[in-house]
């Protein structure tokens, strides 16, 4: 359990990385604020102010990119720059990798919660169910971290892995149909509904706020299942690279 003593420093390194803060906190804050100016007074079919919907989408969209910091730390600590030092230390390297993942997930969730707090107190967005929202945010954060690590482990060139992780984020935003309507056929319908973590989580939150509990749990459990499967894949791939 000597790994525990490193957690403090991992957390500090994450918080001090100001680029991640700009990308995952400052940009969404500006965008949410801006959209709330434009959309103030607009109401959806269900009578909910549109800014609620928009703030929820923003919080979830930026969770898709939360894995980049974990990817960066693991690559630098266990594969390149600090590799020799880390392997000379008397702790289990696999546990160290897990501790970075855990820190990254907590950090990403924290940023999500900060966004929620900001939008509630400054912009007056009403979050119906905080615990459900945080649960979904954590699922998204963990999924993003696992996907990013799978890219890091499976692609030789780190630059390409980075681009792939960006493609994961942007790709699912596009596939969710947030930029433009997609052509209607079986493949795109699947990728715009049950095959897309973003729409799944959005659906789960919407259903929960309409007290449609069973459907909400169903969609959240799909995410959980995907996380479990991808976690296995990540372990298998990671065993080849670490240890």
């Amino acid at each position: 359990m000597r790994v525990l003593s490193t957690i403090k420093f991992t957390a500090l390194r994450m918080i001090r990385n100001y680029i991640v803060l700009i990308l995952l906190l400052v940009v969404p804050i500006i965008l949410i604020t801006f959209f709330s100016f434009i959309l103030s007074g607009v109401v959806t079919e269900n009578g909910v102010p549109y800014i609620n919907e928009n703030a929820m989408i923003m919080v979830l969209v930026f969770q898709l990119f939360g894995g980049s910091i974990v990817m960066y730390l693991i690559y630098h600590d266990l594969f390149t720059e600090n590799k020799m030092r880390m392997y000379a230390l008397p702790f289990n390297q696999t546990m160290y990798a897990f501790s970075i993942m855990l820190c990254g997930a907590l950090y990403s969730i924290l940023l999500g919660i900060l966004l929620m707090v900001y939008s509630q107190f400054v912009l007056g967005v009403i979050w119906k169910n905080w615990f459900w929202m945080i649960y979904i945010i954590s699922l998204m954060a963990i999924l993003s971290i696992i996907v990013c690590l799978i890219f890091t482990f499976s692609v030789k060139n780190y630059k390409i892995a980075e681009r792939l992780s960006e493609l994961y984020g942007v790709g699912f935003v596009v596939l969710a149909g947030l930029f433009f309507p997609l052509p209607r056929n079986a493949i795109f319908d699947f990728l715009g509904s049950y095959g897309n973590p973003l729409t799944l989580s959005m659906g789960a939150i919407r259903d929960m706020s309409l007290t449609n509990t069973s459907s909400a749990w169903f969609q959240a459990n799909i995410l959980l299942g995907v996380i479990a499967i991808l976690f296995m894949v990540m372990l298998l791939l990671g065993r080849r690279r670490i240890g």
Partner: peptide
């Protein structure tokens, strides 16, 4: 990398504020 990432976040904002998406 720093230049690219910060410029990227700037692009998001400029594009929305400039009226290309809305």
């Amino acid at each position: 990398d720093v230049a690219f990432l910060i410029y990227m976040s700037l692009i998001f904002i400029v594009v929305v504020l400039g009226g290309l998406i809305i």
